[in-house]
């Protein structure tokens, strides 16, 4: 069984990267991962004994993010202030297409975004995604299909025009 310390050393960086894609706010992402790991620490014996800590931690991360999003969306509309990454100085190095794609992904509803992130960033199968999200594989496919339809439609527009629409 892997120890908690070893697990965090092995997977911590990847979990923070995953959180950056789920939560949109890069600073909050690390806090969220730390919070989720602290919860996992308390139950580590059971989690590691089950033999699949990744699934447990990823599920906690996604559920924490979604419950947070629900609380926020009931009181305030999330604006298009998505480009809050700390290294905005690097903006010039990234292409308009990447910016546009990320903005569109970030605007997806949380479940659809989680599905896309798990499929394209974590390279997981639909069965594995279903397990993490605790939904059926049919639902995973329909979530992914809806998200991809939207992304394809929007990405066919000029990246520059999409980006320009959000520029402040």
């Amino acid at each position: 069984m892997i120890t908690f310390d070893d697990y965090v050393r092995l997977r911590g960086a990847r979990l923070v990267q995953l959180a950056r894609l789920l939560i949109r706010d890069r600073h909050l992402a690390e806090d969220l991962v730390q919070e989720v790991l602290s919860k996992a620490f308390v139950r580590w014996k059971k989690i590691s004994a089950a033999g699949d800590p990744d699934m447990y931690v990823r599920r906690m991360l996604i559920n924490s993010n979604i419950s947070w999003w629900r609380r926020r969306s009931s009181s305030e509309i999330v604006t298009a202030t998505i480009g809050d990454r700390s290294d905005d100085a690097d903006l010039g190095d990234r292409t308009a297409g990447q910016d546009a794609a990320w903005r569109l992904i970030a605007e997806l509803p949380p479940r659809q975004r989680a599905t896309i992130v798990l499929r394209y960033f974590e390279d997981l199968s639909d069965e594995r995604i279903a397990e993490i999200l605790e939904i059926s594989t049919v639902t995973v496919r329909s979530q992914a299909m809806r998200a991809l339809e939207k992304l394809r439609r929007q990405l066919e527009q000029s990246p520059a025009s999409i980006e320009g629409g959000h520029r402040r």
């Binding site: 908690f4 310390d5 965090v8 050393r9 911590g12 960086a13 923070v16 990267q17 995953l18 950056r20 894609l21 890069r26 690390e30 991962v33 730390q34 919070e35 790991l37 602290s38 919860k39 996992a40 620490f41 308390v42 990454r85 700390s86 290294d87 990234r94 297409g97 990447q98 910016d99 794609a101 990320w102 992904i105 896309i116 992130v117 394209y120 960033f121 992304l151 990405l155």
Partner: peptide
């Protein structure tokens, strides 16, 4: 496009020892 955008967004340094210390303290 999706894969590149996600990889680009996720990139950046992570202080794993700080993360571990914080998680242990909170835990």
């Amino acid at each position: 496009s999706i894969m590149v955008a996600l990889q680009d967004r996720a990139d950046g340094g992570v202080h794993v020892e700080d993360l571990l210390a914080g998680a242990l303290q909170r835990g």
